[in-house]
Design a protein around this nucleic acid. Structure first.
Lengths: 118, 118
DNA sequence: GTGCGTGTTAAATAATCACTTAACGACGAG
DNA sequence: CTCGTCGTTAAGTGATTATTTAACACGCAC
């Protein structure tokens, strides 16, 4: 069981970018930032960028956006909106679900799907 | 059906504070801010304060912290942490649950409780 | 009418976030 | 040997967030 350190945001971006043979300047242009900035972000000298840039990066590098945002220490604004719309219910649900195993959560998500259909 | 405007953060704080006969300066001291600041916050001339102050206000005014944070356009950092710990699962769960009625969500929350006990 | 307690006004500040600009050093191709 | 491309370095900027300071005006109590 990989009980290891989690890879940093910057390290992941650099690795995946290089794996796709995308240059630093090219990538910077794609996400709408300066090459310098991206360089520092990739080496974790700067904090991860704002949400929209993280999302663009996720798309380019074919990563899950929520996962990458988490690595960037962010929560997608649409999730925040969902919580704000019904704070008590969502807060209580999240705090309960937190204590469940991944399998139990998956099971619960299926139940939610069912409820939606009915 | 109260299809009305939602009360602002500031308005709620002022109303509840006055209901409890707490002075502006007194309350400001309790939350660790200047009276001036609180005055402007209560009249929505300034945006709601940072998370920790909102939480103190919630405690003083006996409001639900998550609810008050939502009114302050914030999500409690502990909820953000829960999401960041398992971004994919939690994102997917939230996006599904969003489409359910309050009753369905409540039902699901009970299921989660059960799962926890087992 | 002086002094205290209330809330209010305008201006300024401090901190943090999210970046950019300009210049530099190393490397391989022509 | 110089040119283009690579990533890097240090410094600075612009916007936003979160808040403070000092001064003021009103009502009530003595």
């Amino acid at each position: 069981m990989s009980r290891g350190e989690k890879e940093s945001f910057g390290a992941l971006v650099r690795r995946e970018r290089e794996a796709r043979k995308i240059g630093l300047r090219e990538m910077a242009k794609m996400i709408g930032a300066s090459p310098t900035y991206l360089s520092k972000v990739e080496r974790d000298e700067f904090a991860p960028p704002a949400e929209d840039k993280v999302k663009k990066i996720a798309e380019i590098l074919e990563q899950d956006a929520d996962e990458l945002l988490a690595l960037a220490n962010r929560v997608s604004s649409d999730l925040a909106e969902i919580i704000k719309a019904r704070p008590r219910q969502m807060a209580s649900l999240l705090r309960t679900v937190q204590r469940l195993t991944p399998e139990e959560v998956a099971q619960l998500a299926r139940k939610a799907q069912q409820a939606r259909k009915s």
